[in-house]
Each structure stands twice: as C-alpha cells, then as structure tokens.
Design a protein around this nucleic acid. Structure first.
Lengths: 356, 356
DNA sequence: TCTCCCCCAGTAACCGTTTACAGAAACTGG
DNA sequence: CCAGTTTCTGTAAACGGTTACTGGGGGAGA
C-alpha cells in the first residue's frame, strides 16, 4: 500500500479536512446525493435535502475547490499583471478588472511585475498552470525581440487552452499573435494636448518626461511632435522618466542654467507636471501666467492641485472592464480583436493665452 | 462505465489538455519519474532528466495546479478583501500585501466589497473554499452584531483549517476570536494633528468629514475630541462622509451661511481636506493665512497640492506587508496576536500660527 | 566470481469531487 | 393487483497529479 492510512494522529498533525464523505455518512446518504443537493441542479427529495443540509451545517463543511475543479467544474479566475498598484492609472485599471470579473463570477488575481519583462513572463506561465481564463497584462515594459517571441508563444498556448491573453493599455504584438488588445489613443491625446497649448498662442513648447522605449511614452512623444510639425514648429524634448521627481528635478536644473527655453510644457504625465509646477513656483514663476502646462492621465488630484491641471483623460477603469469583457466574449466565440478607447483633454486652469 | 472515454472528438470539443501521462509516454518513462524530475527534489539520472525535459518542452506541458493541490502540494494564496482599490490608502495596502505575498511565494487575490458586510462575508466564505492561507480584510464596514458573529465564526473555521483571518486597519473582534489584527494608531494620529493646530494658537478648530459608525472614522473623532478637551475647548463636529466632495460641499455651504465658525480644520482625510481648501479658495480665503488645515492619510498628492498639506501619515503599505507576514508567522506557530503601527503628522505648509 | 548495497525507476493508492449509468422505490393508469 | 413510468439514490470511474514502497541493475568489496 503506497500511502500510510493517515493514522498518525499526532498532536502536530492537523486533523483532516471534513470531506463530502463525512457529510454523506452523517446524513446517511451517498456522496453523490450530497454533491447533487449542494449543486442544486438535480431533483432531490425534500427530506433528503434537509438531512444533507443539516449535516453540512453541523460539520461546517466546505467544498474543496481543487477537487471540484479536477472533476470538471472550476472556479474561474482572471489575472491582471501590472507594474505596480499604487499609481492611480494602474489602480483604476485593477479596479475595472476586478469589478467586471466579479460581475462575471470570476475571482481576480493581481500580480505586480515591477516592469520586469522576465517576471511578467514568469507570471503568464504561472497563470497558464492556474487555468486563469483571462490574463491581462497592463502597461509598458521594455520589449526585446525575445520577450515578444515568448509572449506570442504564451498567447498561443493560452488560446488553445481556452484562455486569452489581453494586452491592456499597450499596443498589439502583430496580427499573427492571438492576443487581444485594449488600448487608448495615446498619440491622439498628446496631439490634442499639444494643440491645446499651441492654439493658446504658444510657440516654444517643450515635451517633458517619459521613458524612451516604453510603449506608453513613445506615442505621446510622437503626438507632440506631430502637432508641432503641423504648425512648422521645432520640437523641444526633455525625456528621461515619468513621475514627480523627474519633472521637478529637470525644471529646477533648467531654471538654474538660465531662463526657461519655452512658455508651454506638455508633460508625459500628471506627476511630472506636478513636479514641474512645484519647481516653477519655487523659482517665482506663475502657472499659467508665466508658463502654461498640460499633464497626462487625469489623475484624481489633478483637479485639486493649484492651479487645477489641464490634462488628458484616460478611461482607465473602462480599460480594465473592457479587457475582461473582451476576453470572456472571445471565449464565447466573439472575435473582437482590438478596441481603442478614446482620450480627451479636460480643460482646467493651467494653460493661459500667451501674451506677446 | 460512468464516464464516456472522451472520444467525441467533435470539432467543437476542445482537445484534452496534455497531461503528465503524455509526457511520460513520449519520454519513455513512468509518470512518477516525470513528476520527480519536475519537482527536482529527488535523485534522477541525468539522461532521464534530459529526456523528460525534452518531452515537456516538445509537448508544451504545464502542470495542473488543481490536481497537484489535490495530491498534497498546493500553490498557496493570500486574499485581500477591500472596499475598493483606487483610493490611495487601499491601493498602498494592496501593494504591500501583494509584494509580501509574492516574496513568500504566494499569489494574491483581490476582492472588492464596496463596504458591504454581506459581500465581505461571502468572500470570506469563498476564500475558505479556495484554501487561501491568509484572508485579509481591510478598512471599516458598518459592524452589526450579526456581522461580528459571522466573522468570528469564519475566523474560527479558517484557523482550524490552518489559515488566518487578518483584520487590517481596523480594530479587533475581541480576545476569544482567533483573528489577527494589524492596526495603526488612528486616535493618536488625530490627537497629534489636532494638537499641532492647537499649538499654533488656534482655539476654534473644527473636525470635518468622516462617516459615523465606521471604524476608521470614530477613533479620529475621539482623538480630536480628546485633544480639544485637554485644552478645555469645545469640539465642533461636521461629520458626514469621507472624500473630496463632502469637504468641498460642506465648507461651501458653511461659507454661504456666514463666516466660517473656526480658524482651523482637522479633516477626516486628505481628500476631504483638499475639497475644503478648494471651497476656501473659491471664497477668497487663503490657506494657511486665513484658515489652517490638516489632513489625514498622507496621500501622495498631499505633498504637491497648494499649499503642501500638513497631514497624518499612515504606513499603509507596511500595514499590508505586516498583515501577510503575521498570518504566515502564525501558521508557523508564532502567536503574535496584534500589532499597532505608529502614525505621525508630517508638517508641511497648511498650518500657520494664528495671528490674534 | 559472488554478495551486498546503492541508486533510480516503476507501480499503484490516494487526494475530494462530479456525474454517467443502473437500480430501487413510489406512483400511475388500466 | 400488475405493468409501466417517473423520481430519486447509489455505485464507481475519472479528473491529473504525488509519493510510499518495491524491484531491478550495476558497481564495489571480498
């Protein structure tokens, strides 16, 4: 006999979990009956039903999801792979994913990757083992050819296992990879934001922030450049990183070197814009009177900074909801491959008409 | 024979997942050998090992976690039950939980309850089925006696199944309930914040915001009241809700009714403070020159509002990390029942000395 | 050359459910 | 009162792994 009959009963040994067998014994019925009563999708005599329910309550029985899954009915799961969770953009996406998942009767697994492609890949693999029916990867990572190849492979594998890989808030991997894409119009947003500043009469407008190579960064730069080019203006790029710190440090350094080379700033994100505003103010410059600025992302606090920040709104929560909706629809045969959600600039008080 | 031998092979039928048996066949070994090679915790001849790995790769085999769990080794999971995810406080806790969980080799399940006790209870039950080894509930809900009784029951049940229930950022359920508690000094923070305003010379100081009955609200009110009482001052309470909207609306309404009945405000949370500042500014009042204000939570943006907001810092991420650390230690027999993390007021520029 | 070991690999029980099939009990109608 | 239904309930295979125990083969020591 391969296994000891679990009779060690030492004080250290956890007593065995109560199983459906225990319930059956106590109720004086078979395990099949218990299972059927609990599932509720099969005719059962009221008396039997009562006995079983009674036994379940007495024993405080709970099903074992693993056994249940193995036997055929599994609690489905949606996984979201994100760089981190505290940035409002990610938090909103997570919230959207969780809510839509819950609505569709799924549990939501959150994994942070720290923008590390290898960790992301490892998680995708793990999710495949878990049998998640949707794996949503959000945000940009630095994409190497090897990374793309791997991801394409996993997309394929998930697909043939009945799951889906969804790229959320990032561009697709090409038509041959069976991954779904939910994206927003990154370039268009930057184009609109830049145009907004430009049409207030500014001509020297810089683009501040963003991490080159990241898929959330490059299109914004492109949108900015396109808007500038459309008016015959030369771009003025200060790239480096996202976030408050970079915005603050960069503007501060520039200010120390001499007068600011522009009267308008298109920031890569609201944090960056906030940093810039802080540096500007510390140097005695007024926003928007002396320099106008637009952010990107429409973080909640953007509306409550001083001045309220004009910025580009991204429908983050909707992005998350759409991701799981698409994945689940795809399982049911709806072949919606890609959806792009719109962005728009929300005008507040950080941009002013340039006085010549 | 109870089950059809899966020979339907219709075009609609998903082909069966490749199993360890397939791998064994292809590699020309037994399933035991495959399992052992994959587990890596048992001596294996290099040649065999190679063959198996080869077959695994060729077939693109992945283990089935459910089968594995059923057989004894399960991928453990930590679950966090939270009201929502976008509020920075919750987002930070989630991040802390996820990171610590990952570090301990656990996956992290996130469930939002919308502050609905019934949903929370339902999730706790579900997590018991899932076999999560830690269930962390964060934030306050309106606690009815029935709710407490249920939660105590689940705590007991989880405990005897080798899991733990952790109450995070909320008070305990009493000494007889085997739930762990990770909390922060809510009342102390409010006391310090209030004292900070008071010692700047203010005497008419209001408490603004907070939802009565919530466990994150009442202690803050108590701390405020205690600080006021310690100086023989009468409390001035404007309770109602957390968040920007309530702060804005309440101050605006007050201002329409006449002059503000105070020169200092202790807000229930940073959002509320931000709303108040906005209303104040719109009415032409200056912060902190005309009225001083302190927030609570130390949300990221608090440092970048104008003026930078003096507020109470809560170690939210650390709260999350501690929650999973405690749960896991408790499993290993360490009986740490409760830990209270400290809070402190971070002084910025929204409180000024009262000029008489 | 013959034992005795040691190292690896194979066999098969078991984890806790679900469910196809079969059989029993309770009705129904004639 | 009996055959034909209908309505439940029980039996046992299957899900896909893990691992205790067993056994075979090769190397080492005598």
């Amino acid at each position: 006999m391969p296994r000891k009959p679990a009779e060690q009963a030492g004080k250290a040994g956890r007593e065995a979990r109560t199983t459906i067998r225990d319930v059956a014994t106590r109720a004086g019925v078979s395990v099949a009956t218990v299972s059927r009563v609990l599932a509720g999708n099969y005719p059962t005599a009221p008396a039997t039903r009562t006995k079983v329910l009674r036994a379940v309550k007495d024993l405080d029985y709970v099903v074992n999801v693993h056994a249940r899954a193995l036997a055929g009915v599994s609690q489905k799961t949606v996984a979201i792979l994100t760089r981190e969770v505290i940035t409002p953009f990610y938090a909103h996406i997570i919230q959207g994913v969780e809510q839509q998942a819950a609505q569709e009767g799924r549990l939501c697994l959150v994994c942070t990757t720290g923008a590390d492609p290898d960790r992301e890949l490892a998680y995708v693999k793990m999710m495949r083992e878990q049998g998640a029916d949707a794996v949503i990867t959000v945000g940009g990572v630095q994409e190497t050819p090897e990374y793309r190849k791997q991801l394409a492979h996993y997309a394929q594998a998930l697909d043939s296992a009945g799951s889906r890989l969804v790229l959320c808030g990032r561009p697709g991997l090409g038509p041959d990879v069976p991954a779904l894409v939910v994206h927003y119009d990154n370039e268009g947003g930057a184009y609109s934001a830049t145009s907004h500043v430009l049409s207030a009469g500014h001509e020297r407008v810089m683009f501040l922030g963003g991490a080159p190579g990241f898929t959330t960064s490059d299109p914004r730069v492109r949108g900015y450049e396109r808007a500038m080019a459309d008016r015959g203006l030369k771009p003025l790029l200060y790239l480096g990183a996202f976030g408050i710190h970079f915005g603050y440090a960069t503007i501060k350094r520039l200010l120390q070197q001499g007068p600011l080379p522009c009267t308008g700033i298109v920031a890569s994100d609201d944090g960056c814009a906030a940093g810039a505003v802080k540096a500007l103010r510390e140097a005695g410059l007024r926003v928007p009177d002396d320099v106008s600025i637009v952010g990107y992302d429409d973080v909640p606090m953007a509306a409550h900074m001083w001045p309220p920040l004009t910025t580009v709104h991204i429908p983050a929560e909707e992005l998350g909801r759409t991701a799981v909706r698409m994945a689940l629809q795809a399982q049911r045969g709806m072949p919606e491959r890609e959806t792009i959600l719109g962005t728009h600039v929300v005008v507040r008080d950080s941009v002013a008409r340039r006085v010549a």
